[in-house]
Simulated scan of single mutants.
Amino acid sequence: MPITAQHVRETLDAYLTHHPDEKDALSVVSEVLDEAGDSIASRKEYRGHVTAGAALLRPDGRVLTIEHRALRKWLLPGGHVEASDTTLLDAALRELEEETGIRSDQVEPVSLLPFHIDAHPIPASPDKGEDAHQHFDFRYLFRTTLDEVETVDLQEEEVTAFSWQFADMLTAEPLRSRVMAAARGGTLPT
């Protein structure tokens, strides 16, 4: 069963229970969710739609970043949800595997809840026939015991390069501080 508005609402509400200071910043997610219903999971919902991302930590505290081909930016692995995804966590794990080749049996989620939710604008893409819209990125934190970067098998249609960065190299807050805390062994809500 595809991701539903109810699942997105429950995930958002659980996240905001742990991060009430972000309620105003994420009010746009709630508003679009109220208006869009289940189409919140469709990439054709141009008021905004959910996406899923993965922050993958190695034992040495480095986090995997990828260079996104179309946006020409260094990002965490992630992307649009698909009809086969049943949860946002599943979507994040699928995207991690698709973009990097790192299999789900090589990682484990730190929590069943996202460790960060971000709402950000995406420019129009005339080549894809897409209007400007917003992504509501539900980001999950995973750990791996992998030490070898050779395990990364890039999805070349979307990703041009990868890098294992120390968490303090991330620039966006509160993403940076949360990944740094997890790298130091801090805990996240389950």
Rank of each mutant, 00 (worst) to 15 (best):
Ile3Tyr: 05
Thr11His: 03
Ala14Phe: 09
Ala14Tyr: 08
Leu16Tyr: 11
Glu22Phe: 11
Asp24Pro: 05
Ala25Cys: 08
Ser27Cys: 07
Val29Phe: 10
Ser30Tyr: 11
Ser30His: 14
Glu31Cys: 03
Val32Lys: 02
Glu35Cys: 08
Asp38Asn: 15
Ser39Phe: 07
Arg43Gly: 13
Glu45Trp: 11
Ala55Glu: 13
Leu57Gly: 03
Pro59Ile: 06
Ile66Tyr: 02
Ile66Arg: 02
Glu67Pro: 00
His68Tyr: 01
Arg69Trp: 01
Arg69Cys: 03
Lys73Gln: 15
Trp74Phe: 01
Leu76Val: 02
Gly78Val: 00
Gly78Glu: 02
Gly78Trp: 00
Val81Glu: 05
Ala83Gln: 12
Ser84Met: 14
Leu88Glu: 03
Leu88Val: 12
Leu96Cys: 10
Leu96Phe: 01
Glu97Ser: 12
Glu98Thr: 12
Glu99Ala: 00
Asp105Leu: 08
Gln106Met: 07
Pro109Ser: 13
Val110Gly: 00
Ser111Cys: 10
Ser111Phe: 11
His116Met: 13
Ile117Glu: 05
Ala119Pro: 04
Ala119Asn: 10
His120Phe: 10
Ile122His: 06
Ser125Ile: 09
Asp127Ile: 04
Glu130Thr: 03
Glu130Phe: 12
His133Arg: 13
Gln134Leu: 15
His135Cys: 08
Asp137Thr: 09
Arg139Leu: 11
Tyr140Leu: 06
Tyr140Val: 07
Leu141Ala: 11
Thr144Gly: 03
Leu146Pro: 00
Asp147Tyr: 01
Glu150Thr: 12
Val152Cys: 01
Leu154Arg: 08
Val159Thr: 02
Thr160Ile: 04
Phe162Arg: 00
Gln165Thr: 00
Asp168Arg: 07
Arg178Asp: 07
Val179Trp: 01
Val179His: 02
Ala181Asn: 04
Arg184Ala: 14
Leu188Met: 13
